[in-house]
Design a protein around this nucleic acid. Structure first.
Lengths: 128, 128
DNA sequence: TCTTGACCTTCCCCTTGCTGGAACCTCCAT
DNA sequence: ATGGAGGTTCCAGCAAGGGGAAGGTCAAGA
């Protein structure tokens, strides 16, 4: 299967797949013509990667997850640890964003939003 | 005031301040020796930038905010519009992260996390 | 057979918002 | 005069790809 089909089936841009090959996440064979040839297993990996990425796992996490997936003797504890660490990062991000959101919501609601220059948003940002 | 003092007072790394000068957000004068010399107004801008950045505004948003701040004839509506757009982006990000969080929480809680290889997390990622 | 258009290849630069480091200059205190 | 703590520039790199150029290949239609 050529990269275009693999991309369509995996739901990933071809560019992304090439990048994944570049960094060693997948290693499709090459045909006589130099085209990448994706096996069902390669495709499967790509789908796996797409899902892991859509859950916010970093590329390095994905590399670890793929390794664990391929390891018959893995301990599910290792997967769980990785996922929990990621979960904690997500929580942190959410908390940070919610703090921003709260502050900004206050500021926005206190701003008249008319043609006059007075603006509590700018005032807050520039306050001494 | 030299960059080190400006950095300490603004709560920004010196590197960041040099970067901000590079992209035209601040324009401190230069002394005879080539050192940057920050005026109180420059410092004020840096503090402004630090706060805006900490609220998640992009550099380009910061540029606009600074321009609005310096414009006596601004309409507060323009500031509000900018802030609201940013708020919407934050909301989107939060929603995305919360969806990830929910999914991952489910997966994590369903994983035994022991020494056996069976793992619903990997199973979900690799499911056909 | 020729050509056209879709697909593939590599390559390098661009993005965001900095951060680290190398090589070098300047200032102040001893 | 010398040492160390500042400052300066420039270059490289991070995540995770995206854009686009220059060129090779393949399959179908005239």
């Amino acid at each position: 299967m050529n990269i275009g089909d693999a991309a369509a089936r995996a739901g990933l841009p071809a560019k992304t797949i090439r990048y994944y090959e570049d960094i060693g996440l997948v290693s499709p064979r090459r045909g006589e013509n130099g085209y990448r040839s994706f096996s069902p297993n390669d495709l499967h990996k790509l789908v796996f990667l797409g899902r892991a990425r859509s859950l916010g796992f970093s590329i390095e996490d994905c590399r670890s997850l793929l390794a664990l997936y391929g390891d018959e003797n893995r301990a599910s504890a290792d997967v769980k640890t990785l996922a929990r660490a990621h979960l904690a990062q997500i929580s942190d991000k959410i908390a940070g964003l919610q703090a921003m959101h709260a502050t900004l919501t206050d500021l926005v609601s206190s701003c008249a939003g008319d043609s006059r220059p007075d603006c509590p948003i700018l005032k807050t940002l520039s306050d001494r």
